[in-house]
């Protein structure tokens, strides 16, 4: 099948080494500094709160958003995290997940709105999202390091690429799903398209958008282990170390920590989704 040679490998390497890095190195450095300041800030805030207080606050929040069962689970989960001595790692992972989720929402929701308003934008966005979701993660780990250096920052970037698509898709879907009779009614009352978006379409789309946010958080957590290969500290690093030493126990200790965080975050955002739907 090789009718012609496609030097994709050389092109990409030349592009990155001779153009992207020298020309935009400073720009990426700037992003890197801002993001690492953000990740470090969130991590040290989370670690500043005494673990007992943090567990109680989350349990209360869980009670409010979801119910008593989740509150009990959250307390038990944090007791586990404390008992196996992975508190710092859990908070580090949580902070990378939170920052990635916030970045994903900040970029994803506006793109979702744009593609709901404009068919052409959607046509361009959809294959891009497919590409982002199916391209194996390992491929953009190394370029992420080249551009942003090792540590939490490339992890946030790689996680964002992987976790943003649901935020875009669900925002788009949520706005498009607003019933046309409601749209017509608000048009009849003379609403401008800005009013329509802010006061009709977005509020009605919130439950769907929240479902997208929930998906984004889950995908972000699932990147934790992979991200530790590019120097992201946290639970993933415990798991990776366990795997590479054939230390099954250590792998499970870190893995269960991820599960605890995932269940709490998942049920809480689901609860929030239900609350916004009412």
């Amino acid at each position: 099948m090789n009718y012609f040679t496609l030097p994709l490998e050389e092109w990409t390497n030349t592009f990155i080494n001779e153009w992207l890095l020298p020309v935009f190195g400073g720009f990426f450095n700037g992003i890197s500094i801002v993001l690492s300041w953000l990740v470090d800030g969130v991590t040290s805030t989370l670690l500043f709160i005494p673990p007992e207080l943090f567990a109680l606050l989350i349990a209360l929040l869980a009670w409010k958003l979801s119910g008593r069962n989740l509150a009990i689970f959250a307390l038990a989960g944090f007791l586990y995290i404390g008992a196996v001595d992975i508190w710092i790692e859990s908070m580090t992972t949580l902070s990378i997940v939170l920052v990635s989720t916030v970045v994903s929402i900040f970029i994803g929701v506006p793109i979702g709105i744009l593609s709901a308003m404009n068919g052409r934008v959607e046509q361009a966005v959809r294959p891009t999202l497919d590409f982002m979701q199916t391209l194996p993660v390992f491929i953009y780990l190394i370029p992420a390091v080249l551009l942003f250096g090792l540590g939490g920052v490339p992890a946030v970037i790689a996680t964002t690429i992987f976790a943003m698509p649901p935020a875009v898709r669900m925002t788009n879907l949520g706005i498009r799903q607003v019933p046309s009779d409601i749209i017509e009614a608000s048009q009849a009352f003379g609403s401008t398209s800005k009013q329509m978006l802010m006061k009709v379409q977005l509020p009605l789309a919130v439950p769907t958008i929240m479902a997208g946010v929930n998906q984004t958080i889950m995908l972000a957590l699932s990147m934790a282990v992979v991200a530790s290969m590019i120097g992201a500290p946290g639970l993933g690093s415990i798991v990776l170390s366990g795997i590479s030493n054939v230390n099954v126990g250590q792998g499970l200790v870190g893995g269960l920590g991820i599960v605890v965080l995932a269940i709490i975050l998942d049920r809480m955002t689901q609860g929030l989704t239900k609350k916004t739907a009412v």
């Binding site: 080494n17 890095l21 020298p22 190195g25 780990l141 190394i142 370029p143 390091v145 080249l146 551009l147 250096g149 090792l150 540590g151 530790s228 290969m229 590019i230 120097g231 690093s237």
Partner: peptide, 19 residues
């Protein structure tokens, strides 16, 4: 000490050396 992987470490080294 920053842990990553052979590829991650070399990419970081390449990044610093390019500047």
């Amino acid at each position: 000490l920053v842990a990553s992987s052979e590829g991650g470490m070399l990419a970081q080294a390449q990044r610093n050396m390019s500047s």
